[in-house]
Write a protein that binds this DNA or RNA. Structure first.
Lengths: 222, 222
DNA sequence: ACCCCTCTTGACCACTCTGGTCTAAAGTGT
DNA sequence: ACACTTTAGACCAGAGTGGTCAAGAGGGGT
């Protein structure tokens, strides 16, 4: 017997956990990438073992089957996102634009340090017709909720000018920053980020933030 | 001989053009959808003939091969987009927010009346590793350029408040409206739009526009 | 020397699907 | 009756699928 069953009756692949971390990482990365690029159905276990540089048999020795691997990856992705992205957000900042700016920075950093996880999770949401076990659905829901609370909790409403609806202002600011982020990601796609100096983009980003503050916040004169 | 060669040495499928329009449409729609959902490589000609309700042989009687069909569809898509979307934009409106609002309306209408073309073209841009013949690349470029000029040409800069960079304001407004549009499309995805009353969403959209005007345009007091 | 257990490989399986061909027939016009 | 166009789908060779399994490698205990 080389699998143990936890209280949640979730199968933990023991031999896999005992692997040298570098090999573990190779497999996880290869799998995340394959699923991210192709979705669950079309992802090929043959491609995964090829890129992970392991024999075909090993994948099914470590994991029960393709679906088991996929569920493991979702679990893995949620854990790193919570640990390395959500937990990094500094909640003492009560200025909405500053808070969101910080979230954008953390998110971009995370995206470039874990591109496979990042792509895997966003494409997983697009994959229809896959039903996940309850405990994963639950964890995804919790992650979602935690993300939302990081965005909106404890925000100082009094900074906003009074002639506009604050909730709508939130959305407009969110769309603006996400739009900048998307355009940027698109522009830099395919380039090796390690060789790239992102500072000019951050400067540009801060200029946009300044405009958002000018337009959506109260003017400071008495 | 049932193909004719034009001056641009582009193959026009003559028997296909002589088809009853309803059958033509069935084939085009089935193909657009299959390519949109799967990308060029993974789109299946078997699925196309099945959904178009024609025999397998017919597809290769009408078109030289899979690639010929794909190129025909790109050409077709560009034509309808130019005719039914770009040409509908009213250029006399010099207020940027109003202009963009109008573009959003036309685009949404087009999207719901031609969802297959719309999805086909946007997913085509995501498809790497396909190189198109020069005349198609050229037409795509022209379409792009026409779209951009519809957005920015002849805009009245004097409406904007003077303490912000107008170019950056353009982007912020663009991201805001595109963000609203994306969120909405996402929310309504899968629902039958014919049965849906979109008016409340338009009302909400106009409220956002009002805020954008309040924040980015000059106040009218003397 | 031997056993036992874990770890590893890749050939192999039965199956599905691929783009494309081709034969044979049905329709159409004269 | 004949020529021509249009139609359907069985068929092809090849590639790829998730998953299995027999065979062996490595290492610790005796």
């Amino acid at each position: 017997m080389n699998k143990i069953i936890t209280k949640e009756s979730q199968v933990i692949p023991q031999p896999f956990n005992n692997l040298e971390p570098s090999k573990q990482k190779r497999i996880i990365d290869a799998a995340l990438k394959e699923f991210a690029e192709n979705g669950y159905e079309r992802a090929s276990t043959n491609q995964i073992v090829k890129h992970a540089e392991i024999g075909k048999g090993m994948l099914f020795y470590y994991f029960e089957n393709k679906q088991g691997l996929y569920h493991y990856l979702i679990d893995y992705a949620i854990s790193t996102i919570e640990r390395e992205y959500l937990k990094q957000i500094y909640m003492e900042e009560r200025d909405f634009i500053e808070r969101f700016s910080q979230i954008t920075e953390v998110k971009m950093t995370y995206h470039y340090e874990n591109p496979n996880v990042s792509n895997f999770i966003s494409n997983m949401y697009l994959d229809d017709e896959l039903d996940l076990p309850e405990h994963l659905e639950k964890r995804l829901g919790e992650m979602m909720e935690e993300g939302l609370s990081k965005l909106y909790e404890d925000i100082d409403y009094t900074l906003f000018r009074e002639d506009i609806d604050v909730e709508k202002a939130f959305q407009l600011i969110r769309w603006s920053m996400e739009g900048y982020q998307n355009d940027l990601l698109n522009e830099l796609k395919g380039q090796n980020i390690a060789l790239l100096n992102l500072d000019p983009y951050w400067d540009e980003f801060y200029e946009y933030l300044a405009i958002l503050k000018t337009t959506f916040y109260k003017t400071e004169e008495e």
